[in-house]
């Protein structure tokens, strides 16, 4: 028991230290690397909080994909860094900010310490109703059955974000390919890795999706893995990023949401409500939604990292 306490204590101290360092360090590149480290440490914290699904998501998206995104950005912004840094606010505003941030922290700490005991929880209700979905993973049950609308809207969020990113395309390049052209180095290590890893990654992604019904995992984690494999192949120069005007690409982007909506509406005549599943068929339908969504999520995440088109088709 004491070992556990020691572990939790060190982890928390480490997380806070890395967070402070990420904020304080002058070099932005270092800050981004700090953030990647922070994401991985945070995933450990999630495991300690018995939220393995969240840990996987945090490690894959919070730590992994966000870091790739930020590293790419920081390299491109390097030339403007010193100019922007010169604008650091004066001592008074820093003090005010510290007071504000400090009081928010104090208020939150107070609330955390006074949270009711025993804690209110929906776990019993989830446990009582999860049988109707025949899922073993309660989190997947919440995401795809009880609170399916949130998950549906989240898929819409991803589409909106991608549309918003694409708005930033310079007019002449509309319909072009996102990201720079990556040269393939046939004998390079990266090309080797990009040939070796994706088959493995795809297997793992399908596995993560499949077990997500009963164990930690699901479409987001699997989709992120696929996105990472795709990005790896693109950055190694093995495949090209597709032009954003491609019809198949558009179709694949909305596939998950369309399947979700279709099954949702099928629930009206078959199960009596939008987003309800017919008795006994919940699990296969949910897996169908998850499989379609995984593809759309993978493509969307990958394209979000690549950014708006930068060259012609």
């Amino acid at each position: 028991m004491n070992m556990a306490l020691l572990f939790d204590g060190s982890l928390i101290v480490l997380i806070l230290a890395v967070a402070v360092w990420t904020m304080a360090v002058r070099n932005s590149f270092a800050a981004v690397i700090g953030y990647a480290t922070y994401g991985l440490l945070l995933a450990l914290a999630w495991v300690r909080l018995a939220a393995v699904d969240a840990a996987l998501t945090e490690a894959a998206i919070g730590g992994g994909l966000t870091s790739v995104l930020l590293i790419r950005a920081v390299v491109r912004l390097r030339s403007s860094e010193s100019a922007a840094r010169a604008e650091t606010p004066g001592r008074v505003s820093r003090l005010l900010a510290a007071v504000l941030a400090g009081s928010v922290t104090a208020a939150l700490a107070l609330v955390v310490l006074t949270l009711p005991e025993p804690a209110p929880t929906l776990a019993p209700q989830v446990a009582a109703n999860i049988a109707s979905t025949s899922l073993g993973n309660a989190v997947t049950g919440v995401l795809l059955s009880f609170r399916a609308i949130d998950t549906l809207l989240e898929a819409v969020v991803l589409v909106f974000a991608l549309i918003a990113v694409w708005t930033l395309t310079p007019d002449p390049l509309w319909g072009g390919r996102p990201g720079p052209r990556y040269e393939l180095d046939e004998n390079g290590m990266l090309a080797y890795l990009a040939r070796l890893l994706p088959p493995l990654g795809i297997v793992v992604a399908v596995y993560v999706l499949w077990v997500g019904a009963d164990l930690p995992g699901g479409k987001f984690q699997a989709g992120t893995l696929l996105a990472a494999m795709w990005l790896l192949a693109i950055m190694a120069g093995l495949v090209e990023a597709p032009p954003i005007s491609q019809r198949w690409l558009r179709g694949a982007l909305v596939l998950g949401t369309v399947v979700f909506l279709a099954i949702g509406f099928a629930g009206v005549p078959l199960a009596g409500a939008f987003l309800a599943y017919p008795e006994g068929h919940a699990k296969p339908l949910i897996i169908a939604i998850e499989a379609a969504s995984m593809l759309s999520i993978a493509l969307t995440l990958g394209l979000l990292v690549l950014g708006p088109p930068e060259r012609g088709a």
């Binding site: 929906l122 209700q125 989830v126 109703n129 059955s145 009880f146 609170r147 399916a148 609308i149 949130d150 629930g267 199960a271 009596g272 409500a273 939008f274 987003l275 309800a276 599943y277």
Partner: peptide
């Protein structure tokens, strides 16, 4: 009111 998925709050939306 419409109960999505037939689930009543607080479990549903």
């Amino acid at each position: 009111v419409y109960l999505l998925g037939g689930w009543a709050p607080p479990l549903g939306i």
